[in-house]
């Protein structure tokens, strides 16, 4: 007799646990307000990334097309992957001294692992992370970027 009771208790107990699970999925089925999917390309306009989001490395320029990079190359030595290449040139200032300035700042996005050491160690805070995450391109060569804009100069007061 005991085994018969156990047999039926097993059935009803089992069915009850199944119904508990069905209650959860059923609840979500009938409450479409709980949908969490983001409709990505449509919500592009509204999409705001967090300000610390690491999308790509950028070199902020001000309205006079000036950046803060002195071309010291600290970022280049700190980069674990050889992502950054700083090509400096030497110019002669008005008072006749030779000065090292930035010529080209090459950034290879395809090799970057976003460890943020470059931004952190830059003594003149010339680098930052951009918010643009749509970095897909058709050709690998397009991932090599030159960060200083053409014709840009170093900001006054930055040594």
């Amino acid at each position: 007799m005991k085994s018969i009771i156990k047999y039926f208790a097993d059935i009803f107990g089992g069915v009850r646990t199944l119904l508990v699970g069905m209650k959860i999925t059923g609840k979500y089925f009938f409450s479409p307000g709980q949908i969490v999917t983001q409709q990505y390309p449509e919500n592009r306009k509204k999409l705001v990334m967090f300000d610390r989001f690491k999308g790509e490395l950028i070199m902020p320029h001000n309205e006079n097309n000036e950046h803060k990079c002195t071309g010291c190359g600290i970022c280049e030595t700190n980069c674990p992957n050889g992502t950054i290449e700083v090509i400096p040139t030497r110019i002669e200032t008005e008072d006749g001294k030779k000065k090292r300035i930035l010529d080209t700042y090459v950034y290879r996005l395809g090799m970057c692992t976003f460890c943020a050491l470059c931004v952190k160690t830059c003594p003149s805070e010339a680098l930052a992370f951009g918010q643009d995450f749509e970095q897909a391109v058709f050709d690998r060569t397009q991932l090599t970027k030159i960060l200083n804009k053409p014709g840009s100069t170093i900001m006054k007061g930055v040594e």
Partner: peptide
């Protein structure tokens, strides 16, 4: 669609 709604998704759209 049914499974999407059960899983808090939109499904094919």
């Amino acid at each position: 669609k049914v499974c999407a709604f059960m899983q808090n998704r939109v499904g094919p759209n």
